[in-house]
Every structure is written in structure tokens, then in C-alpha cells.
Simulated assay, not measured.
Amino acid sequence: MSQNTAILYTLAVAGVIGFQICLMAGAPWGRLTQGGQHEGALPMSGRVAAGVSIVLLAFMGAGITSAAGLPPHWPEWTGWVALGIQALSTLLNWITLSAPERRLWAPITSIMLGLATYTVLIDA
């Protein structure tokens, strides 16, 4: 079962990476990310942050799939690190002052946290 939850988690990560790519390309979704401080497209610093997020998300996905015994077969601790980052991301999305960001990302990151938790803790 943990392989299925890891795959679902990775699919969710791919969706979030797609969102970040759109932000980098200038999509006018600034109010839905990074604290909702920007209407419209993100400034260059926000686009760079989106790029950093892509790298972090890719590593998180690989850590969770590794925890389930899937490629890339990284050490067990990488799954724990990914779970910790996912928990922090979920918390930050629940407490953001931006209501649009909270409405979109709090449920998504909560589901991702559930999938990561199941993969790393429950069915390990």
C-alpha cells in the first residue's frame, strides 16, 4: 500500500511543480502563493523562489518514493526529511494570512501530508 500512497504523493508533487512552472513563466497567480503578497505575476524574486521550490519538491518526491522502496532508492532518512518539510509546508499554508492561498493550498498540502505520513510512518 505504501507504494500506492508514494505514487499518489508524487503525482501531487508533479501538479505543484506544474503550478510553480506556471508562476515562473509569469502566470498571474501571485495572490495564491508566497503569502499572497503580489497581485498578478510574481516579481523576479518570487519567480526565483518558485524555481527553488521546484527543486525542493522534486527531492521531496524522491524521498517519499524511496521510503516506499521505489526508485531512486535513497537512504531512509530522506523520507523523514521530506515528511518534515511537508508538515512545515502544511502548517504554513494553514496559518497564512492570505485567504485565497489558504483555501487552495491548505487542503492540498494536508492531503499530501497524509500520503507522506502513511508512506513513511504507517506502512513502512
Results as ranks from 00 to 15, higher is better:
59 F>P: 00
90 T>R: 01
78 T>D: 03
79 G>Q: 09
77 W>R: 03
62 A>D: 02
67 A>T: 06
92 L>P: 08
69 G>P: 07
80 W>F: 08
62 A>W: 07
90 T>W: 15
98 S>L: 14
82 A>M: 08
64 I>F: 09
94 W>G: 00
77 W>T: 06
92 L>K: 13
82 A>T: 06
92 L>Y: 14
84 G>F: 00
74 W>C: 00
59 F>D: 00
53 S>H: 11
84 G>M: 01
53 S>L: 12
90 T>Q: 11
59 F>L: 15
60 M>E: 12
67 A>R: 12
64 I>M: 11
83 L>Q: 04
77 W>A: 05
61 G>F: 02
99 A>D: 06
78 T>A: 01
72 P>D: 10
89 S>T: 13
55 V>A: 15
89 S>F: 02
93 N>V: 00
72 P>K: 07
73 H>L: 15
70 L>W: 01
53 S>D: 15
86 Q>M: 15
67 A>N: 13
83 L>I: 11
92 L>E: 05
64 I>H: 04
60 M>V: 07
70 L>N: 07
94 W>P: 01
87 A>E: 06
82 A>K: 10
52 V>Y: 08
72 P>F: 07
84 G>L: 02
92 L>S: 11
52 V>P: 03
68 A>M: 11
57 L>H: 11
70 L>E: 03
56 L>K: 09
56 L>Y: 02
99 A>P: 07
84 G>K: 05
55 V>I: 15
99 A>Q: 13
55 V>S: 13
99 A>E: 09
54 I>C: 14
52 V>Q: 07
82 A>S: 14
57 L>C: 03
94 W>I: 02
82 A>Q: 03
55 V>R: 08
65 T>I: 00
67 A>V: 04
90 T>Y: 03
70 L>G: 04
79 G>Y: 02
62 A>L: 09
76 E>M: 04
71 P>Q: 04
63 G>S: 07
54 I>Q: 14
96 T>H: 05
95 I>P: 07
72 P>L: 12
93 N>I: 01
75 P>L: 05
55 V>H: 06
67 A>Q: 04
78 T>Q: 01
84 G>R: 09
52 V>S: 10
57 L>I: 06
85 I>F: 09
52 V>H: 01
65 T>N: 06
87 A>Y: 06
65 T>R: 13
79 G>R: 08
60 M>K: 05
69 G>V: 10
91 L>Y: 15
62 A>G: 14
60 M>F: 04
67 A>G: 11
59 F>E: 00
68 A>W: 06
65 T>H: 13
72 P>G: 08
96 T>I: 12
84 G>E: 03
64 I>N: 06
85 I>N: 03
87 A>H: 02
55 V>C: 10
94 W>D: 00
96 T>A: 14
96 T>R: 11
53 S>K: 01
79 G>H: 09
54 I>E: 11
96 T>P: 10
63 G>F: 01
71 P>I: 04
51 G>Y: 11
87 A>F: 14
66 S>E: 07
92 L>C: 12
